[in-house]
Design a binder for these strands. Structure first.
Lengths: 351, 351
DNA sequence: TATCCACACGCAAACGTTTTAGTAAAAATA
DNA sequence: TATTTTTACTAAAACGTTTGCGTGTGGATA
């Protein structure tokens, strides 16, 4: 339990100045060969490492990026984090994770805690409560203070910053089109309330697909789940709502669900009602996670490539950080491509 | 894009000294009432926040704890992180996450990057490669440097530090006993190679249960999966190995799997072979995650209460940090209790 | 009027670095 | 030998805080 060596103690020990030690360690030509040797040997012996905090203070940058997400026990978000981590570490950056738990207040607190010099920039996916309140002052203030932000997945249009998203509308349209092509006549969507941007957009894509195929919109076929039900606690309520939905729509032969959980639960309800998948009912989910892959039957889904999204987020942020002098005020929105992963809840009509 | 206000700029603007500003903001009685007012008003106007990095440097503590885990796309680990986050934030600490990706080198790098003043202490679950190499010098060196470490789940006995674990042996024994009580005669275990501590211990629990019931050990009933197969890429190989395992053990009527994935995959193989669960084969998995809950049929599992484990880790670490003067060299090992979650892959003989 | 004491504030050091500018001494040049 | 150049190093400032101590001003007291 010895104290960590600093330049100062090395200097004192070797009877040279602090600056000599510093320079010797960086192989400066200002320092003589034998002095360098002495210093390096001593530093290695005592396992000297420069103090990161001091460096951060001096350089006014921490080489750390803050990621704030609604929840971490969630396959998509962790996949994104993996991508962020990978790219960031590779560039010598650390990643600090803050959880908002979908709460506005916790999001504000997290932003506050980290924005005071702890991190160089943020990557954030906005909490549902924040989206519902439409209060983004904490985000715009952070940007105003010169801390760049990259938003992903749940983004908000009013805020000017770099963004990484999936083309929710086009992707959903593609998925629903697939159901139509596979012969579905009565296609329902299980979505979220409209203030969740991805729910809103995916619903729009669903409607566009119907419209494009001259299928009339039927409000009964659109189920908008209340956000609170996402938490694992009230699974039964979710199941109940979907059950009711199924009862209301007897000849339902296709379901597009905006997330894994809704898709899986729909399958569960279908199974309970003796509905054969995919023979009587075809299902496509958004987001390709473990649940979909290991479901029975394995679920056809849309893969959003979370890892790549994470990499893109980190890249965008770090690029902006590294050229912060130029004050580039033009922001990018990266749209990552999606893929339809055909598994066994859809009929394989066309590949 | 204004620069962040510091004490210095406030001081200059108000034509007082830096120390006056600092003291005024903390309501020191040394400062006159009107000056305090002026300073506070100005600070609020420009949204002044003390720079955390400077404080960290001064106080020699960062109020940040580093968590290093093998992978983040994993229900158990994210649950633990949730617990850590919750407790830590509540105590005013931040959480920084490092991923080892099960690699020894990445673990060392992560430890190195963070140990130089960036964090006050670590919470770590050791990478498989590290366990295989049995090289823990990076960990002991970190502890020697005065940075406390708490290990959880995958711990190593040789290292003296606080630990949070599950009683793997007893818990596994209990699970296997349950299978026996439910009438299973031929019980197999799907485990990992022995260098993964949890796999080794859970296998031991399995054997103890057999022994306790005077059932002879049968090597054929013990399948030790090679670690590399955990990654989602080679699922087919995993499936293949389990398939072979089933063929070798025809009258198998009980399976105890040391993790979710193995359990789920075993069920998949069983279904493919037309084996009815739980009528012909009963299955219990270790770790209660989303897969188990949403499996069909829902999987009976052992819940390790990851959230509580996280809280315990954070509590242990923070307690040690806050009384670092006393140099308490007695370490605790917290054993969190487990529960058998009865679902539908076991016969409900006794509740 | 001389002395004392609050009062209100400023100075400076410290945390551990890096870096610019400066300075002795030694070496090279004239 | 006198001057310049090079070598090898040190001093000090800076990053943004906090805090113990010093100090000038004023009013109250003697």
């Amino acid at each position: 339990m010895k104290q960590k060596p600093t330049l100062k103690v090395i200097a004192k020990e070797l009877d040279v100045s602090v600056s000599t030690v510093s320079k010797a360690l960086k192989d400066s030509k200002e320092i003589g060969a034998k002095t360098k040797e002495r210093v390096k040997a001593f530093a290695k012996l005592y396992n000297y490492r420069p103090n990161n905090i001091a460096l951060s203070l001096k350089n006014r940058k921490t080489k750390t990026i803050g990621v704030i997400i609604p929840e971490i026990v969630h396959h998509f978000f962790t996949t994104v984090i993996s991508g962020i981590e990978q790219y960031a570490n590779q560039q010598g950056y650390n990643v600090i994770v803050g959880l908002s738990n979908e709460s506005f207040d916790k999001e504000v607190i997290n932003l506050d805690m980290l924005a005071n010099g702890s991190i160089d920039g943020f990557i954030i996916s906005v909490a549902k409560e924040t989206l519902a309140k439409e209060d983004y002052h904490h985000i715009s203030e952070t940007i105003d203070q010169g801390v760049p932000i990259v938003m992903f997945d749940r983004v908000v249009d009013e805020i000017l910053c770099d963004k990484v998203i999936v083309d929710d509308v086009a992707t959903s349209k593609k998925a629903v089109q697939q159901l139509i092509d596979n012969g579905c006549k009565k296609i329902g969507i299980i979505s979220t309330k409209d203030y969740v941007s991805v729910g809103r957009l995916r619903t729009r894509g669903y409607l566009e697909a119907l419209n494009h195929n001259h299928i009339a919109k039927d409000e009964n076929l659109i189920l908008k789940i209340d956000d609170k039900l996402n938490s694992n606690d009230n699974l039964e309520q979710l199941e109940q709502q979907i059950e009711t939905f199924f009862e209301k729509n007897k000849q339902l032969d296709g379901v597009f669900a905006v997330n894994e959980l809704y898709a899986i639960t729909a399958m569960k309800v279908a199974r309970k009602n003796g509905i054969q998948i995919p023979e009587q009912l075809q299902v496509i989910g958004f987001t390709d996670g473990v649940l979909s892959k290991h479901a029975h039957p394995p679920l056809t889904t849309i893969s959003q490539h979370g890892f790549e999204m994470g990499e893109d987020c980190a890249r965008l942020l770090i690029e902006r950080l590294e050229k912060q002098d130029e004050e580039d005020e033009t922001y990018q929105t990266v749209v990552v491509k999606t893929d339809l992963v055909h598994r066994e809840t859809t009929k394989t009509k066309k590949q």
